[in-house]
Design a protein around this nucleic acid. Structure first.
Length: 290
DNA sequence: CTCGATCCCTGGACGC
DNA sequence: TGCGTCCAGGGATCGA
């Protein structure tokens, strides 16, 4: 079975990139004939989705941060795009009409080749919106730099002037787009920076190192089709492999790969954060939670 | 500006 | 086995 499914792990940049590439191969060029909606509370404007999609062609599938961006065109339409955020459990996959409809299927787009593009999301933490023109442009403008497309200077500028904790900054999509909990923790471990360290307190060398390892980790994760614990399968039906390379994420209580110290988990910026208390020294005055 | 708290939602893990 | 409870996560929002 061909499936674009995210298992237990939330889709972050590498997982969304994997899905986007698979979808680009599978559905680019297809026309959307019709749309059937189920629950719509995760859709910005369900009526717009229902009205605008039919008749449009999926020109290109891109990743934008953690969003999938389906660029839609049509002879009598101004170009627009369907933004899909997979949230935690979202899946977007092209399936044969004959394929039984999975539970929690909320959007079905009929394609011109007899298949359907289905959005399945148990928790509905995802988001979907049809946007076009100036509205689309402004929406995308809200997000920060893509780590893959920017450079160390831009990263340093966006991080270095901020007094928020580095973990919060990495997760803040208006600062850097695409990074989530896994890759934030992994890159902080590799750069030996405590998640509660303030952005502005990082030395230039640390910021440079952090950007370098973040880029390296994201690229490697993309090459390995992302992280999955259970059943993330991509276009070729292969699971992601990057979870085997996790150094701190999900390893609370286990030995640090560098120094053997037990990996700890604390809450930083409201998010569970795994780190090595020896390799990643806490900033002065930092009070642990959990 | 930055913080924590709260809500959204459901499946899975865990305790009894 | 079957309950109940807790937790996970990204993002929006709100008050401090």
């Amino acid at each position: 079975m061909v499936a674009w499914t995210i298992g237990k792990e939330m889709p972050e940049l590498p997982e969304v990139e994997t899905v986007a590439r698979g979808l680009q191969r599978a559905i680019a060029g297809r026309k959307i004939l019709g749309v059937t909606l189920g629950k719509t509370d995760f859709i910005d404007d369900a009526a717009a989705v229902e009205k605008e999609l039919p008749g449009r062609t999926i020109r290109k599938v891109e990743r934008f941060g953690k969003f999938l961006l389906l660029r839609l065109g049509g002879e009598n339409h101004a170009d627009g795009a369907l933004l899909v955020h997979l949230g935690m459990t979202g899946m977007l996959m092209p399936l044969a009409v004959s394929e039984p409809q999975a539970k929690h299927t909320h959007v079905v787009m009929q394609l011109d080749d007899g298949r359907e593009l289905r959005y399945i999301d148990a928790r509905r933490f995802g988001r979907m919106a049809f946007l076009a023109g100036e509205v689309l442009r402004r929406e995308l403008e809200r997000f920060g730099a893509d780590p893959l497309e920017s450079g160390p200077e831009e990263f340093a500028k966006r991080i270095g002037e901020r007094r928020a904790r580095i973990k919060a900054l990495l997760l803040d999509q208006s600062v850097i787009r695409g990074v989530g909990n896994i890759y934030a923790d992994e890159s902080l471990w590799k750069a030996k920076i405590h998640p509660a360290q303030l952005g502005a307190r990082l030395k230039p060398k640390q910021t440079k190192k952090l950007y370098a390892v973040l880029l390296e980790i994201l690229k490697k994760a993309i090459a390995l089709r992302g992280s999955s614990i259970s059943d993330f399968l991509d276009a070729e039906g292969l699971p992601g492999e990057y979870q085997r390379h996790h150094r701190v994420y999900g390893r609370e209580g286990e030995a640090c790969f560098r120094c053997g110290t037990r990996i700890r988990r604390v809450i930083v910026a409201g998010r569970s954060s795994c780190f090595c208390p020896r390799c990643q020294r806490a900033p002065r005055g930092w009070k642990k939670r959990i």
